[in-house]
Computed example of a mutant assay.
Amino acid sequence: MEFKALRAFAAVVRQGGFSQAAKHLFATQPTISKAVRQLEHELGITLLDRSGHKSRLTAAGEVVYHRALRILAERDDLLAELDEIRGLRQGSLQLGLPPIGSNILYAPVFARYRKRYPGIDVRLVEHGSDRLESLLLSGDIELGATLLPAPDTFDSQPVCCEPLVALLPADHPCAGRQSLDFTDLGDTPFILFEASFSLNRILLGAARRRNLKPVIAARSSQIDFITELVATGMGVSFLPRRIAQQRPHPKVAQVLLDEPDTQWDMAMIWRRDAFLSPAARAWLDIVREIYPPA
């Protein structure tokens, strides 16, 4: 059984089709189709039901897909261990960062890393924390940044812990206060980030603990757009303090959120018990230099 065939099959499932998988693997669609057919022939069973407009996993395909993810992740671990022999003069680092705060927290790390290890190719993907955790589990990235607490399947290294501030329309009754909690906001609607952002989970979890169910007025992945929605009076949103301070707006007030367990507790995470390549360990070392443990 060839790794190439397993990778092609896993890509078809993950990417949602043969053409998408071909683009993801920088191959032609016939090449991907041939690899999957060869895998089915070798195993003696159909993995994909191609009878409809979209290929679907058969029962056997489900089993092979989940096994393939583990096999490919183990292969990547093996190759990473071999890369250690070569040192840090060449290699790559698959890194996942969230859109929120990366310019503040990780741009200095990236700059120092690039200066110290110019031969390492940093392959960066940007998603919300929940999506990054999925990519870590599937082996598509080696390190990711997320909000704590992280699932038990990951090990972590702290980066920073920052309070949140509420972004309020300038004429909101709480706009002049030093701090507030959710009960002070009354029925003010929330403006949240897209569903894959862990910050939503933290905020909505805190609201549930107070038996509150806020109305969600809008969702977006763009901080500037969210700020403008707040300025129009649509609702309240929340940002880490140091990020909010970089985006002052004449029609938006920033008030400290005094709500338990809502800190922006950022960390680098990786699959527990996975081998970390020298490139990944070097990244963590620089993170520790810039953000030493308290």
Rank of each mutant, 00 (worst) to 15 (best):
D224Y: 01
D49S: 10
K23H: 01
V36Q: 05
I223W: 00
D152L: 13
P149T: 03
L168D: 04
I290Q: 12
E62Y: 13
L25C: 07
V165Q: 01
E2I: 00
P250M: 09
F190Y: 12
G144E: 03
Y106S: 08
F26V: 11
M1P: 02
I226G: 00
G144W: 04
L199C: 09
A166I: 06
E62Q: 15
K251D: 10
A68M: 06
V122E: 02
L25D: 04
L135F: 12
L47V: 12
L93P: 03
R14V: 04
A59F: 09
H172P: 10
P189D: 03
E42W: 07
A68Y: 06
L95S: 13
I269G: 02
R112D: 04
L148D: 02
P149Y: 02
T153G: 11
R210P: 00
R242M: 01
I290L: 15
F238H: 02
M1V: 06
G205F: 06
F193W: 04
R50D: 10
L72C: 13
A274Y: 03
A218R: 13
L132F: 07
P99A: 07
Q20E: 14
P98W: 00
H24F: 15
M266G: 01
D187H: 12
E142K: 05
C174Y: 00
L147D: 03
P260T: 02
Q90N: 08
H24S: 15
L143W: 02
G52A: 13
G44N: 02
G17P: 11
R177F: 07
K251A: 12
I71C: 05
M1T: 06
F197N: 15
E228Y: 00
Q15R: 14
A166M: 09
A218C: 08
D49F: 10
F275C: 07
G186K: 11
K23W: 00
T227E: 03
R50M: 14
A107M: 05
P98T: 15
F225M: 09
S198D: 13
R271Y: 02
P99K: 07
P189N: 05
I141G: 12
G128L: 11
T153Q: 11
L256K: 00
A11H: 10
G91C: 08
S102A: 09
R75D: 07
R242I: 00
L78V: 14
L39H: 02
C160R: 08
I141V: 15
A280Y: 05
A59Q: 14
L25G: 06
T188L: 05
L192T: 14
F26R: 14
I32L: 09
E126H: 11
E40Y: 07
Y117E: 04
A80L: 10
G176R: 08
A231K: 03
I216S: 08
L192D: 09
S129E: 15
I45Y: 03
R14H: 09
A280Q: 06
Y117I: 04
P108W: 09
P240I: 07
F190I: 04
L229S: 02
G96W: 11
S102H: 08
A8H: 05
Y117D: 04
S237D: 10
D155K: 02
G186S: 14
S33D: 03
L164E: 00
T227S: 03
R114A: 15
A35G: 01
R272V: 06
L95T: 12
I226P: 01
L88I: 09
H24M: 09
V236M: 07
V215G: 00
G87C: 05
H53L: 04
S102F: 03
T232V: 07
H249V: 11
A282Q: 06
L57R: 14
R271M: 08
A60K: 14
Q254T: 15
